[in-house]
Amino acid sequence: MQNRFKKRCRARSCSPMFSRALLFDMDGTLTNSDPFHHEAFVEFGKAYGVDIDEPTFLKYVSGQANSLIFKNLFSHVATEEHPRLADEKEALFRRLIVGRLKPIDGLVDLLNWAVERKVGLAVVSNAPRPNVIDMLAQLGIAEYFHTIVLGSELARGKPDPLPYLTGLERLGVAADRAIAFEDAPPGLRAAHAAKIATVGLTTTLDEATVKQNGADIAVPDYRAPGLWELIGRVIG
């Protein structure tokens, strides 16, 4: 990527100030990675006698922090072992995604549009940092983002609005001049609670469900006309 696209500040707590911003969840929003998470959990769960079918995955895994996932699904394993189990599962996930990820249609065009107009860009995710760094690198889009906000590194993750409020603070942008992109209920509720206009990607759930959880509009990808209408209204 050309130098003009490179981040001016790489530290996670340091970023330039902007007047407008786009904030993106990671899994299911920048890339349709949930099938690989499900694949990893199915394989991992077998070793612990846990059957994670699709309904279970959607209810207890998609968009959730690992601490809550393992509390709900691996309660028969000692709580102090949950971080180790989470690390093992995420390492399996990272092995499974090698060479298999691609950006959601239209994403790179939107990121280029934002860079050309000096719109602040953030990743706001409940995913572990190694996953986010690895996935952004595999997708070839790491250099676009000015900051990465992770729920696991804050006092509260999604569905609490704190991760999105932190993203706004780091970019220096007011909520009414930002748009959030999400695909799962915890993130949709977090963005809505932060009073950010929210786009629900239907990569994981249907249109009705994402709207019920706080999305202002639902789109299949970043080429949808309705998305660009919202962008025009909120950030111009």
Rank of each mutant, 00 (worst) to 15 (best):
R117A: 02
I141V: 12
L96K: 12
K46M: 13
R233G: 10
G106Q: 03
F24V: 04
V42S: 05
F70A: 06
E43G: 05
P161S: 14
T209D: 11
A208D: 13
T166I: 08
L23C: 09
V61L: 07
V50H: 03
V149A: 10
Y144L: 03
A47V: 08
Y144V: 12
F18H: 15
D221W: 05
T203R: 11
S62I: 06
G45C: 14
K46W: 04
T29W: 01
R100L: 04
K7M: 05
D134G: 07
L107C: 07
P55N: 08
E182H: 15
A191W: 02
G157R: 04
D105F: 10
R4S: 13
P159G: 06
D34T: 04
R223Y: 06
D176S: 09
R12Y: 14
G140M: 14
F145W: 01
S75P: 04
N213E: 13
E88F: 02
R95S: 10
L154H: 06
G140E: 14
W113S: 01
I196Q: 00
L188S: 11
T147Q: 00
N3M: 07
E54Q: 14
Q138S: 15
L139S: 09
T79V: 12
T29H: 12
L58M: 12
L188Y: 02
I231W: 03
A47H: 11
F41M: 15
V199A: 14
I196D: 00
E169S: 15
I133H: 01
T29S: 09
V234F: 02
H38D: 11
R10Q: 14
E116I: 14
V61Q: 06
P225K: 10
I148N: 02
I231Y: 02
A40R: 00
L230F: 13
K89H: 09
G28R: 04
K59A: 10
L230A: 05
V42R: 02
G200I: 00
H82S: 07
C9P: 00
A137N: 12
L230M: 14
L154W: 03
V124I: 15
A215L: 06
A47N: 08
F145Y: 07
D25S: 08
L162Q: 06
P130G: 09
E39L: 06
S15D: 05
N66L: 11
F18D: 01
K7C: 10
L30D: 03
L107V: 12
S19V: 08
L68F: 07
G45D: 09
V77K: 09
A193D: 02
A215S: 08
G200Y: 00
Y222Q: 10
R129Y: 03
R4D: 12
G200S: 07
D53S: 14
R177E: 01
R170Q: 09
G167S: 12
R100Y: 05
V219W: 03
G106N: 04
V50F: 02
V173I: 15
V77E: 14
G49L: 08
G187H: 08
P35M: 13
G28S: 13
L230V: 06
A218L: 13
P35G: 01
A184D: 01
L188V: 09
F5R: 15
A197T: 14
P16N: 09
N112G: 02
R156T: 08
K46V: 12
A86S: 13
V119D: 12
A78T: 05
R20F: 09
E39V: 08
P159F: 03
